[in-house]
Design a binder for these strands. Structure first.
Lengths: 191, 191
DNA sequence: GCAATATATTTGACATCTAAAGTGTTTAAA
DNA sequence: TTTAAACACTTTAGATGTCAAATATATTGC
């Protein structure tokens, strides 16, 4: 594309300029490939681990990963959380949270309570049964993770944690700079 | 918990013994926490990136991530792939591949051909339209990934790629050592 | 040959997921 | 005060995802 024409032009320039262009091209090509390779490997590892956890949660506890994740969020905040907040923390859509909460409520593991002061909102909490059940699963879950991450030394794990932090920070920064699309490209028209 | 009582007890011991105990406990506690933190951060980054890609694929190309992934696998192997092979490479179940392939076939982007020599199997291929469409998307996709991974330098990316390789290798090793459950714990009984 | 077993895909029942539309509540501005 | 916008949640439609059972074909061992 642009690089091709630049290369063609610089054939008429000095050798030094030429080399610079070639360097840039090589770097660009390698760099691209690298980011993509990184992403694919990241994805691959995540999916593998997720699949293992998913399978074990089913086999040992007859539950699913999304339910476990939702309960994990609830356990961390003693007072319970609103659907809204759960949606943000789990990084899934609101409709999804509604569905999973329905399931867990049916199983008697969480409860929906009207939120005092805001009749739109619900507070979702772990029931006593839910808390007990979750603690059992969480203990096993942590062992699984330690086992699955066993390929890395403590130092390597630390390195990766901080590098992933950079990735996360960069993505968030980019998001706020770009400004999230308002999801309403046309002037909103009621009904 | 355990750390509290151990600490109390070791107040009566020698200073050296005390330190050893504290060290071990600190390491254990930190170590556990570390693996879990690593996993949560890994997951968080992956989900964030996935969500961005998903959104952009929809907005710019009116397609979805699974369809894009399936097409990406097909583009890499000129001769097409069998459902089986797609399932393995995408790390999803066979039933799932059937569904996505159905969709793409309906859209005219892939085709199912009887597999010569094995009447059980199908070969899935990109159609001409499919290939063209995919190439457009892939170019954009790569730019997105480069942008999203921009928080890491080339060296950092390289480090992470090799560390992720270790994770992957460890998981596979563990899997083969443990022996995948045959999914048939009772002697198989036909029907 | 033929039965037992293995492989490739589909199907069915369900659980997640998203995006978008719908319902009711709150807020804030006119 | 009225009313429009923002907000919290649910509902809907459609796509993915799982596992397990069902089909159909291949392969193997006797």
């Amino acid at each position: 594309m642009a690089s091709t024409s630049t290369l063609r032009k610089s054939n008429h320039g000095s050798r030094r300029a030429n080399n610079i262009v070639l360097d840039l091209e090589t770097r660009a090509q390698k760099g691209d490939h690298q980011a993509l390779r990184l992403w694919l490997r990241l994805l691959s590892c995540t999916v593998r681990i997720e699949n293992k956890i998913r399978l074990r949660l089913r086999r040992e506890f007859g539950t699913t990963l999304p339910r476990f994740d939702l309960m994990a969020q609830l356990e961390r905040s003693a007072g319970g959380l609103r659907m809204n907040e759960l949606s943000k923390r789990l990084m899934v859509s609101g409709g999804n949270v509604t569905g999973i909460t329905d399931q867990l409520e049916r199983e008697g593991l969480v409860s929906r309570t009207a939120c005092p002061g805001d009749r739109r909102a619900f507070t979702v909490k772990l029931t006593d049964t839910g808390l007990k059940r979750f603690r059992e699963m969480a203990a096993r879950h942590e062992l699984w993770i330690i086992e699955l991450m066993g390929g890395l030394s403590r130092d390597e794990q630390e390195t990766m944690i901080s590098e992933l932090w950079k990735v996360k920070a960069h993505i968030n920064r980019a998001a706020s700079l770009a400004g999230k699309p308002t999801q309403r490209l046309q002037p909103g028209r009621s009904r």
